[in-house]
Design a protein around this nucleic acid. Sequence first.
DNA 1: TTGTAGGCGTTATCAG
DNA 2: CTGATAACGCCTACAA
Lengths: 315, 315
Amino acid sequence: MVTIKDLAKEVGVSVATVSRALNSSGYASPDVKRRVLEAAARLNYKPNEVARALNTSRSNVVGVLVPDITNPYFPKVIRGIEDAAIRNNYRVIIGNTDHDMEKESKYLEIFRQNNCAGIISATWSVSGEHHADSRPLVLLDRVVENHISIESDNFKGGRLQAEHLASEGAERILIIKGHEDYSSFNNRLLGAAEALEAYGTAYDTLPYAHLERMLDGAGEDFTLKFDGIICPNDVTAYKVLKFLVARNIPVPEQVKVVGYDNLDFSEYVHPALTTVEQPIYDLGSNAFDMLMALAAGEAVESRIMDVKLIRRQST
Amino acid sequence: MVTIKDLAKEVGVSVATVSRALNSSGYASPDVKRRVLEAAARLNYKPNEVARALNTSRSNVVGVLVPDITNPYFPKVIRGIEDAAIRNNYRVIIGNTDHDMEKESKYLEIFRQNNCAGIISATWSVSGEHHADSRPLVLLDRVVENHISIESDNFKGGRLQAEHLASEGAERILIIKGHEDYSSFNNRLLGAAEALEAYGTAYDTLPYAHLERMLDGAGEDFTLKFDGIICPNDVTAYKVLKFLVARNIPVPEQVKVVGYDNLDFSEYVHPALTTVEQPIYDLGSNAFDMLMALAAGEAVESRIMDVKLIRRQST
DNA sequence: TTGTAGGCGTTATCAG
DNA sequence: CTGATAACGCCTACAA
């Protein structure tokens, strides 16, 4: 491995000079600088990021926390983050928390041990405590007081789901609730409920756990009581669709189903899913940019990104 | 941040002693060791991984190269790797290469700059050259001479696809080829072709690019000429299914379709996809274990994992 | 403009 | 068994 020491020897100057020439921090005569750069290129010198991180106590690694990368929402978020990171010469370390507070704490510890430059978290237990750690932090698809966050317009998204169903003639609507610890799901619910009340459309809500029980064949089948179902995300909608189709309940004729996310798969399920699209990739890349701004000490504001309805065959 | 220096002061010994007590490398009296450990716990000391990596010139980070994390095959692989890594107190840095040789080289460089302990690569351009770098390397779902690799039994998988279609009565089969630079796709093709020849069933092959053209509406529609289609992976099968269904070609009555991977979604598409299941998660976690063995200087052999046919409605 | 020297937190060598 | 001390590769006062 070639180090600045090698360059120093090669060029015939001190390591300090080499360092300055390379970083154009401090001074270096044009001539020396040129020779150093030339030697660096010739010897294929690459700075050791570990040494740099130790010295500056700040690595060019950002930690990213997700519940589970296997949930198809997250790969796209992560891709957005990763692309933005690499453009800025940063790397990302992923942590899967499985909604487990202990795992999350463990990863936060790890990020600290690695002098990470900052953290992007799409998990929910970022509740003060373990964040005595003052590392820059951006929350993704989740808002918590006193923290910078970025999310899609969940309230509007919920409203779009509801308005669409109502305008298509649904009169008894079931809203399936998402994880209650997530502000995003709660806001979608709020948006949908408000819209439905404005329309004067009857609706009911259902905890996610109840849905699972029904899907498993246990518990009452309440699909017959509704003619419109609002799902907290696309994956849930896939399951609902499968359940309905398996029971020969015509979709959308008897029951209309709307999802949320617009995952790539949503056009392949049957019937193709009407859903609210959120800019998943951009959420990730913007989160990274916000993190950098934060790390640079700039003032940054939380951000809400627009969503839109994608109409397909399930409604 | 509490360091071994703090612990040394706290316990009243030298940093060298603290280090030895902590790592139980070298000697430390039971008494001193106990006191050090106690202080470490009390002060919540965590070793700085950056410093350690610099000193030992080996970090506890492994680099993982995938073409695109957004391809639904990879999140599960990565989850397998990540889970195994965290169990062993390792972290993983992901690199998306987009089949781009330059990006791949860049990531390899980055891994080197970070003193990564090893690399797991699911991309194909690991062709000697940039691997003068002698870091431990495990290839995933890809075999290259003189490199340790892990993959599923692609040949058998291809055979299963073909045998199934033939035994279901298909008589003119189309095999859609995957990326030709991947040994995994080539082996599936070989397995399928061999089985079909044994059966005496007629078949034809089609480069993936031609399929795309057809899907885009350009190019000839050759689906009418076949009654069985073997896809290189599930995602391709989804597209084929969608194309057929949109044209009202009855599946599986007129054309049977079989995929490869058994992604979670394959039960939600319409009709639910018959496919070959490979142990994606285990591929990842085993790859990590192999990498560790390699790094420890142990002799490790390339591995092939079993696959099986999952029968659903598309055949 | 340049070089010397100290330090980032650990581990490892070598005396004591 | 323990304590100085020298690395690891880089950056940055401070001096020259």
